[in-house]
């Protein structure tokens, strides 16, 4: 005996009730529970759907779906970082490396002038404002996407809602910049590292807030074959 459409819907609701919010994991768990229930029915055809469902769920242990949820989150973080890393590497190879070097030199030159500290503040604020603006814009875009379909995809949320996270994390780390005294431009090592950090920050912000969201469709389709089904 096979499960009917209504029972499948019920299983989706069941996974949601057990805190599985993302559609891909819901789908996988629904199929698993359904297979198990069908196997039980072969041996005990009189078993009710509800009882079979409870039995199948119990096999996941006392933590239920918690472990798969947690691991999926970790796996998706890893995937997102891999996409970020792949894009970042391109900026250290031709042709983009020309832009990276130019940017680095511009920062370096700016930070060796008498106005170094103003440049540091200026660039910092510029990046922060741009990241903030893009972050809000992406969140709006995400909301619009959700009006079309309410299925939740972890990677989509990462691309649209958490994109500004990495920039702001780096910006927060950079507060040390402000502890640097006015005379920091005299120390060549500090200037080199501040210029490198700024270059890195610009690249990461640009990739996570502009490039990856631009490629969202492609990345989501690659990650979730069921996305287009």
């Amino acid at each position: 005996m096979k499960l009917n459409k209504l029972e499948i819907q019920d299983l989706y609701a069941f996974t949601r009730k057990h805190y599985v919010v993302y559609y891909d994991l819901q789908t996988e768990l629904v199929d698993h529970l359904a297979n198990d229930i069908e196997a039980m029915w072969e041996e005990q055809p009189q078993l009710s759907f509800e009882d079979a469902k409870t039995k199948a769920f119990k096999k996941f242990g006392i933590f239920g779906f918690m472990e798969p949820i947690e691991q999926k989150q970790k796996a998706m973080n890893k995937r997102y970082m891999r996409y970020l890393w792949t894009e970042l590497k391109k900026w250290f190879a031709l042709p983009q490396i020309v832009i990276t070097i130019t940017m680095f030199l511009a920062f370096y030159l700016a930070f060796t002038t008498d106005y170094a500290i103003y440049f540091v503040f200026g660039f910092y604020i510029l990046i922060a404002v741009w990241s903030g603006y893009k972050g809000v814009h992406l969140k709006r875009q995400f909301k619009k996407r959700k009006e079309v379909s309410d299925k939740k995809w972890m990677l989509e949320e990462m691309i649209f809602r958490q994109a500004s996270g990495s920039s702001f994390f780096l910006l927060l780390q950079l507060h040390n910049v402000f502890n640097v005294s006015d005379g920091f431009s005299d120390n060549n090592y500090i200037v080199l590292s501040v210029a490198s950090i700024f270059t890195f920050l610009v690249l990461i912000s640009y990739i996570s807030l502009e490039l990856l969201p631009g490629k969202a469709e492609e990345l989501i389709n690659e990650t979730y074959p069921e996305f287009s089904l």
């Binding site: 996988e28 096999k59 996941f60 933590f63 472990e67 798969p68 947690e70 691991q71 999926k72 796996a75």
Partner: peptide
Amino acid sequence: EGALYPALH
């Protein structure tokens, strides 16, 4: 089941 899916992912 609680170990299989985490491993697969």
